[in-house]
Write a protein that binds this DNA or RNA. Structure first.
Lengths: 253, 253
DNA sequence: TAAGATTTGTTCGTATGTATC
DNA sequence: GGATACATACGAACAAATCTT
């Protein structure tokens, strides 16, 4: 993986890092796939001529990247693993932790991508999938009775999109949308983006989701796309109002 | 960061992983930012009551995530670090290594996002930025004389988009586009997606890039958007032809 | 340039924990 | 339950990098 924008100073890499890279390359060369076993610690120690500690640090590096999994006991060892979407989201989240993302930034992408997702899913979800989505939407059918419930409803509403994304045929599209839902969910919770409640907009948003489900069931791609587009508009408005509210609360303190 | 789609079995987490998480939480609590120094190994050993090896493994976990950087010597130690875009791309790349992404998958997103990027950049690039982009486009002004040059030209053409993405005001949009350029660059190189040459389409693509630069210089957002959209069409056609070629080469073997 | 101080980097031996048979 | 095969963890010593004087 040579880099397309060649920066980052080539500082001296420690042994564990070099070992981790070597193992990664080896796995690729050997065409190992998820579940395949890697050589044990003792064999690694011999093969690389390094101490146990160094090898273990290397394994931890791979583990942190979600690439291996390690088990103790007989038949144990390290195994190649496909990184979970959850871990990939977390790792990418680290990158954005240091950036300032506005609601507008995120919605610029949601508006561009989610309508396509909706269209691509029309007529392709089975009854079970539709039922699961329906349950989520139903979970916020009635107004929240408390702040906590308000928050949970907002999170659930984002989980609706994450769930939809999980059904995407295009893995890239699915991941990106799931990732945005995750970020928004995190932002919603720790910046209290669920207050003040805005029942009218909220209800409109839920209405769009229900109509979207119908269009998906009926295989009507264009209605699904248009509905999602409209939904994104109201959702963005809702969240930007709340973002502004957060700012003014912040300044008032 | 509670998860929006709560899966993944809660297997027993090893000490280094727990220590790494604890340190991460501590950094957030203390509101440390990039460049700030973490406690040294010896202090960690005391604070956590764990051995040096365990602490070091924890540090390696954080390092692998691009969150810290460690230096030896006086004044050395571990320092909070903002993960580089490069590392974030690599980590996310691990996730997609196990997925099968088609050219069509990637272009579905490029078509949806890059025109927006182009429009958002109109009139916002300084002379230096425009010059840098111009140089890239010029680097493939004449037909490639060899396979290697053909490959390099394709990579450079993708670097044009990566460079553009680096100027994005929206960090999310910028990252996503840069990431796709990276994936395509990798695919291009290791699946030889630069053959057979298709001079006509290639030249049209380059023409779009030049017209795009003019529109960006002139601050004409709508022309920039339309030009990028057209460019994406021809680029997709070019690459899908080559992807098909790869498949038939593969089957012929 | 050289010496010394500081901090991480690496090794090795040993002991413990854990899952399988 | 006991033996076996693995990873996990500890501690002490030494090596290497880098800053200061």
């Amino acid at each position: 993986m040579s880099d397309i924008l060649p920066f980052e100073k080539p500082r001296r890499r420690s042994r564990p890092v070099r070992v981790a890279d070597a193992i990664k390359d080896w796995v690729v060369e050997q065409r190992l796939s998820a579940g395949d076993r890697l050589p044990g610690e003792t064999e690694m120690i011999e093969r690389f001529g390094m101490s146990k500690g160094t090898i273990r640090e290397a394994m931890r590096i791979l583990e942190a990247q979600g690439l291996i999994e390690t088990r103790t006991g007989p038949g144990g060892g390290s195994f190649v693993k496909e990184p979970s979407a959850e871990r990939a989201r977390a790792l990418l989240g680290n990158y954005f932790y240091f950036k300032t993302l506005t609601i507008a930034d995120i919605y610029a992408l949601r508006r561009a991508l989610e309508p396509d997702l909706a269209a691509s899913l029309a007529g392709r979800l089975d009854a079970e999938a539709l039922e699961g989505l329906r349950e989520i939407v139903d979970s916020y059918a009635r107004p929240a009775a408390s702040m906590e419930e308000e928050r949970d409803q907002h999170v659930a509403s984002l989980a609706f999109h994450a769930r939809l994304a999980a059904h995407a045929e295009n893995p890239l599209l699915g991941f990106m949308i799931g990732f945005m839902a995750q970020i928004l969910s995190d932002l919603t919770v720790d910046r209290r983006l669920y207050t003040p409640p805005n029942p009218e907009l909220w209800e409109r948003g839920r209405g769009y989701q229900m109509r979207l489900l119908e269009a998906l069931r009926d295989g009507d791609a264009e209605t699904a796309r248009a509905t999602m587009r409209a939904h994104m508009e109201t959702a963005q408005t809702l969240m930007m109002d709340q973002e502004a509210e957060v700012l003014s609360r912040f300044m008032a303190e």
